[in-house]
Design a protein around this nucleic acid. Structure first.
Length: 271
DNA sequence: ATGCGGACCTGTTAGC
DNA sequence: TGCTAACAGGTCCGCA
């Protein structure tokens, strides 16, 4: 489900409710997520104040003085904030984190590709330590990406979806950014000029920023922390549009597979 | 060191 | 209508 904009939307949605609130209880109904939820370790943060709600790549971090919770939404995960009257527990509501101000964080994840982990120091955690730069910072620039891509033999789409190269670019936004940059997803990264990498970096930043402004992309079931969908779907130019006319030239959008992921492009606009 | 396929899951949809 | 297969927003791991 979630790529960077959806995770960012989620983080912004929960922050005002739980920052500076104290964790009073964690309920784990289903511990079989991507990795077993370390129920014992979660006790470390009970009684602690959430001092920061951060995002690194697609990981959500709840920071306390006694360690942090690391949350990943996987493909189908969703976080809701409950405040008032409780809503009934539904299928796949696996985890609940309760706070002293009455707020409840409820994690729902049908496919269970998501994760909840505890770490004393998230910055050096093995899942975080080797991540590439954040795409919306100045660290993600032409010199960096050009140098990085030159060492790779794979398609540019594969390269920008590699979280060791840059975090947060999932399948939807990789397709969208490559269309906006006029680059064929299958083109080898080594065969792209500096000028075109500049367009690509610009396109990645623009598409992610726009998606964040619109609350992410709801294809089927993404919802923000209040249960509302994201509206970037209406701004998708190629994703899911196979057989339909290209918005730029009228040609037919084609679908193929790269790294076994659905890939969409316009053969005349993207070379 | 990089690249690829498989693995982890459930739910929805397309096809017969 | 009903069964089956394919596919879905992610990404780690093991092997070549």
């Amino acid at each position: 489900m979630p790529e960077l904009p959806e995770v960012e939307t989620t983080v912004c949605g929960i922050r005002s409710h739980i920052e500076q609130a104290r964790v009073i209880r964690c309920i784990v109904r289903e511990s079989r997520l991507r990795w077993p939820v370390p129920v014992e370790d979660l006790a470390s943060v009970v009684g602690c104040v959430v001092e920061g709600v951060l995002r690194r790549g697609k990981y959500i971090i709840l920071e306390t003085a006694n360690g942090s919770l690391l949350l990943h939404l996987g493909m189908s995960g969703n976080l809701r904030v409950l405040t008032g009257s409780d809503e009934p527990v539904r299928k796949h509501d696996h985890i609940e984190i309760m706070f002293d101000n009455g707020a409840i964080l409820r994690f729902n994840d049908p496919r269970r590709f998501g994760a909840l982990l505890y770490t004393e120091k998230w910055q050096t955690h093995s899942l975080i330590a080797h991540l590439g730069p954040e795409p919306l910072t100045d660290n993600f620039d032409l010199d960096y990406l050009y140098a990085k891509a030159k060492t790779r033999t794979s398609a540019i789409k594969t390269i920008i979806m590699d979280s060791q190269v840059v975090v947060g670019v999932g399948n939807i936004y990789a397709n969208e950014a490559l269309f906006r940059a006029g680059i064929r997803p299958s083109r080898k990264g080594v065969n792209i000029s500096k000028a075109r990498y500049l367009r690509l970096i610009d396109a990645i930043k623009r598409v992610l920023e726009q998606a964040i402004r619109q609350g992410g992309t709801t294809l089927k079931d993404f919802a923000d922390t209040e249960g509302k969908p994201g509206y970037f779907r209406q701004s998708l130019l190629v994703y899911g549009r196979q057989g339909l006319p290209c918005f730029a030239c009228g040609g037919e959008i084609r679908q193929t597979r790269i790294q076994n992921r659905a890939t969409y492009f316009c053969a005349s606009c993207q070379k």
